[in-house]
């Protein structure tokens, strides 16, 4: 409990900053929607004029973005990116920070086992990403309602947030695993954030080249589509099951690797 409390306290400031950034993105994004809606221009026709490649990179595929649900679904790509970076960094740092700060000798010479340090740290991670998720949820519903005659689309947004949370868990576990396996925090955060970028680029490549569609299974960013959740009210069960299983494996590896680790001063 003391480790959990300490981690919550240590990460409070950064969590607030992340949440503010997220709220601002949603706020600014939905403001733009208002701009579109007011201008009475046929947005879909306008965007059709753009090359497909550009639209794909910005996450605007084939959805009808003149409707608020469709417009909002485009955000999912940005949520995923932001949440993935937040979660993966949290995981990589939280596991290895004592060694980075040279105070591993402090915690790990206390009368507790290593998993008793790692578990509350990861729990703090889960709580942090959950709070981030809930702030995203609240901000989304609030700003959608502003532009949708008071209807915040709670059901659709909830489904989207559930998918987001599964992705966050996955990235937290991925980061933690690198934190436990790699030599130091610097290397862990570098590899983890590099991997997030790699996943993202792969997801764009898959969208651009239909022939490479089979590679979609390799990037978690292609497991959930914003439009299926926001428009068709569907969450892929298979995607959720695969991601959660891999997450469990990563968490397991984190514990095993950390237990075997020679802690540096």
């Amino acid at each position: 409990m003391n480790v959990f409390k300490k981690e919550m306290k240590a990460n409070l400031k950064s969590l607030i900053i992340w949440c503010c950034a997220q709220v601002f993105i949603i706020f600014a994004g939905m403001m733009k929607y208002q701009g579109f809606a007011d201008s009475e221009v046929d947005i879909n026709a306008l965007f059709d004029a753009f090359p497909k490649e550009i639209m794909v990179v910005f996450g605007i595929g084939s959805v009808d973005i003149s409707r608020v649900a469709g417009y909002y679904s485009v955000f999912f790509l940005y949520f995923m990116l932001l949440a993935a970076v937040h979660a993966v960094m949290f995981g990589a740092v939280v596991v290895s920070k004592e060694e980075r700060d040279h105070c591993a000798d402090f915690v790990y010479t206390k009368p507790i086992r290593r998993f008793q340090v790692i578990s509350p740290k990861l729990l703090a991670g889960v709580v942090n990403i959950l709070l981030f998720n809930m702030v995203t949820f609240a901000a989304s519903v609030f700003f959608i309602a502003q532009h949708n005659k008071g209807d915040g689309l709670i059901d659709k947004v909830s489904l989207t947030m559930l998918a987001l949370f599964i992705l966050q868990l996955f990235f937290l576990a991925l980061g933690a695993m690198f934190g436990a396996i790699l030599k130091n925090t610097k290397r862990a955060t570098a590899v983890a954030s590099g991997l997030v970028m790699g996943f993202f680029i792969l997801s764009v490549v898959v969208d651009l080249y239909d022939k490479l569609a089979f590679l979609a299974i390799l990037t978690p960013f292609k497991y959930f589509e914003g439009s299926t959740m926001m428009i068709n009210d569907q969450l892929s069960f298979n995607s959720a099951a695969i991601l959660l299983s891999v997450t469990l494996v990563f968490f397991g590896l984190t514990f095993v690797a950390f237990n075997r680790r020679d802690l540096s001063t």
Binding site: D101, H102, C103, D105, F106, T265
Partner: peptide, 10 residues
């Protein structure tokens, strides 16, 4: 235990 290099949560 008193480690040779003392570092704590700054």
């Amino acid at each position: 235990y008193l480690p040779s290099e003392v570092f704590y949560y700054e």
